[in-house]
Simulated assay, not measured.
Amino acid sequence: MNIIETIKKRYIRLSRGQRKVAQFVVDNPNIVATHIASEVGQLIGVSESTVIRFCYAMELSGYHELQEKLRNDLFNGISSKGEQKVVVSKKQSNFIKEIMNEDVSNILNTIELIDPQQFELATQLLHESQFVYVLGFRQSAPAANFMTSTLKNLRKHVKQIQHEMEDIVQQLSNIDKDSVLVIVAVDHVLEDVLTIANLAKNKKAKVIALTNSTLSPIRDYADAMFTINMQKQISIETSTSLCSLINALIEGMISNNRKQYMTFQKSNEQIESSFSYIESSIRSTC
């Protein structure tokens, strides 16, 4: 097993800082092989000691041994990208592992960004609010759809704000102090989103925001805010960690009264089953 494979295999066990080093080594083996530890640390944005501790986590004697192994692999034509070309039969398998490891990394990093008190507040708001509004435009729409459909299967009074409708204000006409607005904004925040958030706050509603930046302007309106961590600023890479966070928030809501939500879900399934039976009967008579 070469050093790149070893890093990928042990990636999940590393600390947050060491994972940054690991990702940099995998993506830039040439740089690591030709630069000293302090320089690599500066490029990554971590301390030299973090780079050294990463080497120990890889069961190496130190940074020099890491460089030697990288140079040896590069000399033999092995790299994080080259592995896929060396063994053609394993190309697809390696690709799957690489993508899923990135998902795992994004989820693990997102976990570290979650404030437990903010999480508890958000789950309480989802549980106690009479009305839940979900907003997510453009690239944030799929996650908003996922959250809306899941919540509708567990509780009443869940509504998704539609951007294409002419009067957004009309959709929020009933929002009040007994409501919570969940804003999914993992791309550039539209002015419409901030306008809606401001409207919700003016009507005393609570706001939960899911973003991809701690500097998002939506923070000025949020009662609870969560940041999705990702290695690259590409929207598709947010989907796994974003849906995982949404799932955690919903599970947190359910934990407040599991019997209540399971009863509603069961009742909802029975209603859907009845409609399916009626529809099937109508078709069979046509």
Rank of each mutant, 00 (worst) to 15 (best):
I44D: 10
Y11R: 14
S149E: 15
P142G: 03
F264L: 09
D220T: 12
S241P: 15
L43C: 07
E65H: 03
I208C: 09
G136W: 01
R258E: 13
G252P: 02
I175D: 00
C286P: 01
L14S: 00
R71Q: 08
V134L: 10
K91D: 08
F131P: 00
E112A: 04
I228M: 07
E237S: 06
N268D: 14
L242W: 06
L121A: 11
C243K: 12
C243D: 07
L135D: 06
N109K: 08
L210N: 03
E128P: 01
T148I: 07
E269T: 07
S280L: 11
I12M: 07
T214N: 11
E39S: 15
I175M: 08
I175V: 09
I271F: 01
Q84Y: 10
Q233G: 00
E120N: 05
V180L: 08
I96W: 05
F54L: 04
G41L: 10
M58G: 05
I44H: 09
A200E: 15
K91N: 11
I228D: 02
I78L: 14
M253P: 00
S129Y: 04
M1E: 00
N174H: 10
I44N: 09
M1I: 02
Q139L: 03
K8Q: 14
K97C: 05
D192R: 12
E191Q: 14
D187M: 00
K203V: 11
N257I: 03
V158M: 02
I234G: 01
Y133D: 04
Y221Q: 08
F95E: 14
Q139K: 07
H127R: 09
I175S: 03
N229L: 02
Q23W: 11
L172G: 02
V40K: 01
T263P: 04
V180Q: 03
